[in-house]
């Protein structure tokens, strides 16, 4: 049973500030994903929680216990590394049992737990092998099994799937999610892959320049991005932005179209997901520039009022570059942002 609390954590590397005043609470048994581009501080935050890095200021609490002064071994965590870190001089069995041996558990208990976790990760047949004889995917499984065998309160994962090829990554994603849900451990998972984040997380913390921009459920992050950064980082392709001019209280003009919106004294930005656009009788006049068939859909990049604008349309439609389309947003899907603070306006 372990809730994780991060209180006012900041980290400086010399004059470079990697993390600014991070506050985050992760509920017991929650699957939290730290998502962001490389260099956003997500791995640093994970390593501070693990105890591999010390925060410049702030506190880390795990299961109601302050741990930021403890070494990694005393924090009740285990970790899966990006390059797996499977010990090359030990067999798979000894790798999985490594932490248990360090706890001086009796042999039969070590054996029982190793076999159980190896079974969970479907690597029972590899127990006698060495890391050099394993494929990348198998090493990944050993690394996860080794972390699970510790039966930790918290499992930390640093881009664990990023070195696998696309197909294997998809397979492991589902499997990992299942195993972790079953093990009932709290999990923090660092990734730069938004699909991974969306598909696995209970909650996603989107990080940017050493700050958490939004911490919310995947669907909320997708539907109601808290800031322009989240809107343009999540979703592939990202949200479209158009400038909105005030036209009376709560009324806005966006590229010649009128919308109801928040009451605000200054100009805003209006945003819409490309998936939330459709061909209609009335709407934005959009000149198609590039048409990319993606199988199920057509991705059309067009020009609306001098701004780049993308729409995901039905692949049955016959759209050619140069065509002028009339695009209308789905009801209730438009979002508003303050261009100065870049934050969402309700």
């Amino acid at each position: 049973m372990a809730e994780i609390q991060i209180k006012n954590v900041a980290k400086n590397f010399g004059s470079y500030q990697a993390l600014h005043d991070i506050n985050l609470t992760i509920a017991d048994q929650e699957f939290m994903v730290l998502l962001g581009a490389s260099g956003c501080g997500k791995s640093t935050l994970l390593r501070i929680i693990a105890g591999l890095e010390t925060a410049t200021t702030g506190e880390v609490w795990i299961g109601g216990r302050r741990v930021d002064h403890l070494s990694p071994k005393d924090r009740g965590i285990s970790m899966v590394f990006q390059n797996y870190a499977v010990f090359p001089h030990l067999t798979v069995f000894e790798n999985i049992g490594f932490g248990l041996r360090m706890q001086k558990l009796p042999d039969d208990e070590v054996k029982r737990r190793v076999e159980r976790t190896a079974g969970l990760m479907h690597i029972e047949q590899l127990l006698k092998r060495y890391s050099g004889e394993l494929s990348g995917g198998q090493r990944q499984r050993v690394a996860v099994a080794r972390a699970l065998a510790m039966e930790p309160d918290v499992i930390l994962m640093d881009e664990p799937l990023s070195n696998l090829d696309a197909l294997l990554r998809m397979e492991m994603r589902a499997e990992l999610k299942g195993v972790l849900a079953e093990s009932k451990t709290t999990a923090i998972y660092v990734t730069h892959d938004q699909v991974e984040a969306m598909s696995m997380a209970d909650r996603i913390s989107v990080m940017h320049q050493g700050k958490i921009v939004q911490a919310a459920s995947p669907i909320e992050v997708y539907r109601d991005p808290a800031a322009e950064f989240v809107a343009s980082f999540i979703g592939n392709p990202p949200m479209n932005f158009l400038p909105a001019k005030a036209a009376g209280s709560g009324r806005w003009t966006v590229a010649g179209q009128n919308f109801d919106g928040p009451a605000s004294g200054k100009d805003l930005k209006w945003a819409i997901r490309p998936e939330d656009l459709g061909i209609a009788d009335a709407g934005f006049g959009a000149r198609a520039k590039v048409v990319e068939p993606l199988g199920a859909h057509l991705l059309v990049t067009c020009d609306v009022d001098g701004h780049q604008f993308r729409a995901v349309l039905d692949s049955e439609l016959n759209v050619k570059p140069g065509d002028v389309l009339t695009l209308a947003p789905q009801e209730g899907r438009g979002r508003w942002f303050d261009p100065e603070t870049t934050l969402a306006v309700a």
Binding site: A50, G51, L52, S71, P72, K73, I77, S78, M79, F81, Q82, N83, A85, F87, P88, H89, F98, G99, M102, Q103, R146, A147, M150, L156
Partner: peptide, 23 residues
Amino acid sequence: IPLELEEAAWTLGCTRLTAFTKV
């Protein structure tokens, strides 16, 4: 020797010294 191996040992219950001797 990748630093990761040593860090893995620390998270698995090793001190700096035991991580060194065991890994």
